[in-house]
């Protein structure tokens, strides 16, 4: 890093574990591997911080799996994830440790507390980091920008670093060589908060058919009008075991129910075949379908991001293409005599 400030922080690179309903989320191990890549040039030990009431048992497992020392941070009244509490507890802690960097997952949780914390610490802040590289002592961070269509390379020019890391971008870290990592526990003061958790209503039920489907045909805002959704529905009907799904805007518009939404805030699917119709390919969508066996994308924009992860790219207006494809599907029935 080219920071010319004196007294650069000499403390650890702090990875803040992502917590899901089942405890420490797997993405936390990806954060550790990103931290290792960072440490190659930045130096410093890597420390995993696990916050909250259930942190202790989670921490021992996390320490074993991630192979780095873990600090369990408890505070009176601190139970499950709450962005404001995370920020208020971490801010003095990171300062006291002299953290060189703090890493969180690029999720609705990480983004809830990290940017505000970065502003408070005067940190260099980059969100959605997908890759990092060191060259000649200088760090380059890469993230997606411009509607998902381009990558931008950024150089931090301040210290510490505050990063959110795109889930799936780094491999999950395995245990390092050496002795069993330590787990320490500290109790922070109860932070003064301006918000309080309430009982949350249930989110939309998940569509089981979608999770099981062999083929998922998904409609995006590019369908344009609800009537065109019928085309996508007819396309889905050509495949056995197919389910119809949608991007978030299609569900927001009420064209499909939220149980059909694929992506970060919807369902994650991995069918044998995924056909994306009029979907731009925002990260928040592709996170929910990038594990599909074979991906076909139909989009009129040749630069649509969805093409970057498609096996087959169809640059076409879906209103013209789907009927042409359906017509082609109609032919075999006419041509192949029924086998009897």
């Amino acid at each position: 890093m080219s920071g010319s400030r004196q007294a650069l922080p000499a403390g650890p690179i702090v990875v803040v574990a992502e917590q899901g309903p089942e405890g420490v989320a797997p993405v936390s191990l990806e954060l550790v591997s990103c931290a290792r890549a960072l440490a190659a040039g930045l130096g410093g030990e890597i420390r995993l911080a696990v916050l909250g009431e259930k942190a202790r048992p989670l921490a021992e497992e996390a320490a074993r799996r991630a192979g780095c020392p873990v600090t369990v941070v408890r505070a009176p009244g601190l139970r499950e994830f709450q962005g404001e509490a995370w920020r208020e507890i971490l801010a003095p802690l990171l300062a006291a440790w002299g953290a060189r960097a703090v890493l969180a997952a690029h999720t609705t949780s990480g983004l809830d507390w990290l940017p505000g914390l970065a502003a408070r610490l005067g940190a260099a802040c980059v969100t959605g980091v997908e890759a990092l590289a060191w060259a000649g002592g200088a760090l380059t961070l890469t993230r997606t920008t411009l509607f998902g269509k381009a990558l931008e390379a950024l150089r931090p020019e301040a210290s510490p670093l505050a990063l959110t890391v795109q889930p799936g971008a780094f491999p999950a870290a395995g245990p390092a060589e050496g002795p069993e990592p330590t787990v320490e526990q500290i109790t922070a003061e109860a932070p003064a908060l301006c918000s309080r958790l309430l009982e949350a209503p249930e989110g939309p039920a998940r569509d089981q058919a979608l999770a099981r489907a062999r083929v998922v045909v998904a409609a995006g805002r590019g369908v344009g009008r609800p009537e065109n959704l019928d085309l996508v529905r007819r396309l889905a009907a050509r495949f056995s075991g197919a389910a119809l799904a949608g991007s978030r805007p299609v569900c927001d518009l009420g064209w499909l129910g939220y149980q059909s939404q694929v992506g970060q805030t919807g369902a994650a699917v991995a069918p044998r075949l995924y056909i994306a119709c009029g979907i731009s390919g925002a990260r928040q969508h592709t996170m929910g379908m990038q594990g599909s066996g074979f991906i076909v994308a139909v989009n009129s924009d040749p630069r649509a991001a969805i093409f970057n992860l498609a096996d087959v790219c169809v640059v076409e207006d879906l209103v013209a293409f789907i009927p042409a494809f359906l017509a082609r599907c109609g032919e075999p029935e006419a041509m192949d005599p029924p086998a009897s």
Partner: peptide, 26 residues
């Protein structure tokens, strides 16, 4: 606190076969 070095096109993570021809051919 951060400097933009530049933009680049992302690589393709899959085959990315672009179909050619008119609509019917595709």
């Amino acid at each position: 606190r951060e400097r933009l070095l530049g933009l680049a096109w992302p690589g393709r993570t899959r085959a990315g076969l672009t179909l050619e021809g008119d609509t019917a051919a595709k």
